[in-house]
Design a protein around this nucleic acid. Structure first.
Lengths: 232, 232
DNA sequence: AATTACCTGTTAAATAATGGAAAAATGAGA
DNA sequence: TCTCATTTTTCCATTATTTAACAGGTAATT
């Protein structure tokens, strides 16, 4: 499920967008202003952020700057006519796209899809790009793993296994797949090795804030790496 | 550390780029114009050059021509809208890529990475080109090796082994492959010779800054040369 | 609800691969 | 042939992985 953070102080527009995107299968969180958006960023780790430029408390420009200080998450700005587009998309702000109000929600959907597609292509194209998800950071350049900023020691198998799972977060990976990719052999009848590695990984990478393990079991099928709050 | 030379007369833009790329782990040097860029080229030997087209003293086009007279360093041009792209990228100028102002810093980063990746692949094909990665420099012309600028003595086997690994950094090389390429024979059952060479190499080429060895083990498979740098 | 047949999680023991010291073998040049 | 650097082999400690064994759980079936 793609998580979308919308920051806009217009109740009517927000409801409209929320309804439309929920219907399209997105998980929409709403903030009334920039300050609230920053708080929700930290808590929710959204996949994409939509920022209205005109907001109370902290406007879109300032919010974007602060987001960029700690995250490379894709951002789309909602602008009024006459805003300086070059400045928004350019070096100074670093937004990924913009949309002038008023707009059609389908237009917004199209741009979100385009951006997410581009982002995932970029990551595939670069085998050394880091992967971070809900506090787990994989530095693939030197095969090290950080949990909330702290280096943790993983064995080769554990690292490879974790890498497999982080490349397809929120997706079920069958035990067959995992065994072949991470351990390099077909899964045979009474092979419990994979289960052991998962067990050890769980101990090392800990749990989500709620206490659920980051690696969830799908009985009879395999495992999923869950990023924050993808409930039962 | 990747060295980047930026030539642009716009102070604000330069500061932004400098800040962004320093944060991404690049070593940025700045020139205010083409003439200064040429001087810094000679002094600094950058890995990649970013040239603004519009500059006082010596514009981007002319600077690029003079750079090409003596160096094949990758160059990205920053153009204004409406510049003749074909002419910039074509034979006449010989730039490696371009970006129209205003641009998103992440876009520039993506292009730099792509170009560096391409450049390092080309280098592998050239048996006389030196290879440098995270402080390890292989001078293939005379088969000498420098660690952070200091000459270190390697035996023939150690050198060949290191060369194999540096040609495919960040990639697992199986013990079979390495034995055949570096020692010239198939790996047999209780042959520990390769492991010994790796062990000795590790002693000689030291560790990454963090303390992890530069050569990592992938148990049951082989070894991998890791670098903590961008873009290799 | 009880039975049954699977799965999974985990502990502990067994096995296999690696790291490295040191001894033995090799081989190129004097 | 002798020397000396290099390479290979031997051997044991260490660490990673796999296997065995068992304790629960789940879900379908009776």
């Amino acid at each position: 499920m793609v998580k979308l953070l919308l920051a806009d102080d217009d109740a009517r527009l927000s409801d409209l967008i929320k309804e439309y995107f929920t219907g399209e299968g997105y998980d929409v969180t709403h903030a009334w202003n920039g300050r609230e958006a920053l708080e929700l960023m930290a808590a929710d780790m959204p996949d994409i952020v939509i920022l209205d430029v005109m907001m109370p408390e902290l406007d879109g420009f300032e919010t974007l700057k602060q987001i960029r200080n700690k995250s490379a998450v894709p951002v789309i700005m909602l602008t009024a006519k006459g805003d300086d587009i070059d400045r928004i998309l350019g070096l100074e702000m670093g937004a990924d796209d913009y949309l002038s109000k008023p707009f059609n929600p389908r237009e917004l959907l199209a741009r979100i899809k385009a951006i997410l597609r581009r982002a995932s292509q970029e990551r595939e194209g670069d085998p050394t790009a880091d992967i971070e998800l809900s506090g787990v950071l994989l530095r693939r350049k030197d095969r090290t793993v950080y949990l909330d900023g702290e280096l943790i020691e993983l064995t080769t198998s554990e690292y490879t296994l974790l890498e497999c799972m982080l490349m397809a977060p929120g997706q079920v990976l069958t035990k067959q797949e995992l065994s072949e990719k991470a351990l390099g052999r077909k899964l045979t009848m009474y092979d419990r090795s994979l289960d052991m590695h998962i067990s050890n990984l769980r101990k090392k990478i800990g749990n989500l804030e709620k206490g659920d393990p980051r690696i969830k079991t799908v009985r009879g099928v395999g495992y999923i790496f869950v990023s924050d709050e993808q409930g039962a």
